[in-house]
Structures are given as structure tokens and as C-alpha cells.
Amino acid sequence: MIDDASARERVVRAADELFYTRGVQAVGMDAVRTAAGVSLKRIYSLFASKDELIVAVLRHRTEIWDAGLASASERATTARERILAIFDFLDAWFREPDFRGCAFINTHGELGASSSAVADAVREQKASFQAYVARLVDELPAPPELAPQLAILAEGAQTTAAIAGTPDAARQARAAAETLLDAAAR
């Protein structure tokens, strides 16, 4: 028998893949059970509700996002390079064969109006990303209003790439970010 931490990780990873591929509402707990190889009784001992599982999946996605940003900016030596690395990270992600858009935006679209816990988890991740961009903008220096503009470019690129089915939005958003950065440097 696997311990609770291992079972929890299996359930979160299985639910993440299912939710991202099929949508949160389309996936029942029986499908999660089958994919994770963990009984429903055990799943409900780890997560009191499907909403609690969804929030755990979103927290898992936050860790993946944060690690991806950190990895993309490893070689960057300036704040400008770290900002542009966000768009390089998006470009690589959009080219992955299983790219289905932003899990946070997708989940909020499905459940944001009916689940305050899900809406709060999504808002928390988006606020964290905006704070990251704001810290980078502060290092430039540049006017603080540049930070939300850059964050909106990244968010819009995710939605556009998912709907258009092409990674072009990352390159286009990067070019727009460069224009904004150049204008702020004057």
C-alpha cells in the first residue's frame, strides 16, 4: 500500500492530465480513480471534495509554471532578458503537442462563477505572476504601469495560442513586449 503523500501525488497528477485534456466538468471522480490507481474511498480521504482536488491540481500547475519561468530565465543576466524569457518560455510551451491553453484560464472559465475556492486559486496564481513581472519591471527601472501591460501580453498570448492552435502568439507577444520595453527605456 502506498503512503498518503504518494497517493496524493498520483491522484493530483492523474487529475491534472485528465482535467487539462478533457476539461474539469467532463471528468468524473471514477475516471480519476482509474487513472491514478487509487480507490475512491482513498481519494476522498485525501480530498474532501472534487473542488479540493481541483485546487490541489491548480497548486501543482502553479509549481510547474514557476519552475518553467525559472528555467527559462536561468541564463538571463538582466531584468529585460528575464522579461523576454517569459515569452520564450511560452513559445516552447505552445509548441508542446499536448498544449491546450492555460489550465488556470480554462478552469476559471468552467468553474470560476460557481466555485469560490477555484476562483481564489486562479486569482492567486495570476496575482503571483503579475507580482513577478512587477519585480522585474522595478529592476529596469521602468514605470510601474509597464508590468500589467507585459502580464496582459503573456496572458493574451496563452489564450490566442490555444484558440488559434499555433505558437505564433508567443513570438508576436514577445515583439510587442520588446516595443514596450524600448519605449519605457527612453
Score class of each variant (00 low, 15 high):
residue 138 D to R: 15
residue 144 P to D: 08
residue 154 A to K: 03
residue 101 G to Y: 03
residue 182 D to L: 03
residue 55 V to A: 13
residue 43 I to M: 13
residue 59 R to L: 05
residue 84 L to F: 03
residue 47 F to L: 08
residue 8 R to F: 02
residue 48 A to Q: 10
residue 134 A to W: 00
residue 62 T to G: 10
residue 61 R to G: 13
residue 11 V to G: 11
residue 84 L to S: 05
residue 139 E to K: 14
residue 24 V to L: 13
residue 56 A to I: 01
residue 78 T to C: 05
residue 9 E to K: 14
residue 179 T to W: 12
residue 87 F to M: 06
residue 158 Q to M: 14
residue 114 S to R: 11
residue 86 I to T: 15
residue 36 A to V: 02
residue 149 Q to P: 01
residue 10 R to W: 13
residue 28 G to S: 11
residue 135 R to D: 14
residue 119 A to W: 05
residue 177 A to T: 01
residue 38 V to R: 05
residue 161 A to S: 04
residue 115 S to C: 09
residue 71 S to K: 14
residue 94 F to Y: 15
residue 118 V to R: 04
residue 56 A to T: 02
residue 42 R to K: 14
residue 122 V to W: 06
residue 36 A to S: 15
residue 59 R to Y: 06
residue 50 K to C: 00
residue 139 E to H: 10
residue 13 R to W: 00
residue 54 I to E: 00
residue 6 S to P: 04
residue 94 F to W: 09
residue 57 V to R: 04
residue 116 S to H: 11
residue 98 D to E: 15
residue 73 S to Q: 10
residue 97 P to M: 05
residue 143 P to N: 15
residue 170 A to F: 00
residue 47 F to V: 01
residue 47 F to K: 09
residue 26 A to S: 13
residue 23 G to V: 09
residue 12 V to R: 05
residue 127 A to Q: 12
residue 159 T to A: 15
residue 142 A to I: 04
residue 49 S to H: 01
residue 104 F to L: 11
residue 171 R to P: 01
residue 153 L to W: 11
residue 100 R to D: 12
residue 24 V to T: 10
residue 85 A to S: 12
residue 82 R to Y: 08
residue 102 C to Y: 00
residue 88 D to F: 01
residue 11 V to R: 13
residue 140 L to C: 07
residue 70 A to H: 12
residue 141 P to L: 06
residue 92 A to T: 14
residue 148 P to R: 04
residue 33 R to Q: 15
residue 81 E to L: 04
residue 51 D to N: 15
residue 43 I to F: 05
residue 175 A to K: 09
residue 177 A to Q: 06
residue 56 A to V: 04
residue 121 A to T: 02
residue 34 T to K: 03
residue 137 V to I: 03
residue 151 A to L: 06
residue 150 L to G: 10
residue 160 T to E: 14
residue 54 I to R: 06
residue 37 G to A: 05
residue 97 P to A: 09
residue 34 T to V: 13
residue 26 A to P: 08
residue 93 W to H: 10
residue 141 P to Q: 10
residue 46 L to Y: 05
residue 74 E to Q: 13
residue 1 M to A: 15
residue 185 A to H: 11
residue 141 P to A: 08
residue 173 A to V: 01
residue 39 S to H: 03
residue 34 T to I: 11
residue 97 P to C: 09
residue 60 H to S: 11
residue 183 A to Y: 01
residue 90 L to C: 13
residue 185 A to N: 08
residue 48 A to L: 14
residue 132 Y to T: 10
residue 17 E to F: 00
residue 21 T to L: 08
residue 127 A to W: 05
residue 169 A to C: 04
residue 135 R to G: 02
residue 56 A to P: 07
residue 61 R to I: 07
residue 103 A to E: 09
residue 134 A to V: 11
residue 78 T to G: 10
residue 44 Y to T: 12
residue 131 A to K: 02
residue 179 T to F: 10
residue 175 A to C: 00
residue 146 L to N: 06
residue 126 K to I: 09
residue 132 Y to R: 15
residue 174 R to Q: 13
residue 114 S to T: 15
residue 47 F to A: 00
residue 8 R to I: 03
residue 76 A to C: 05
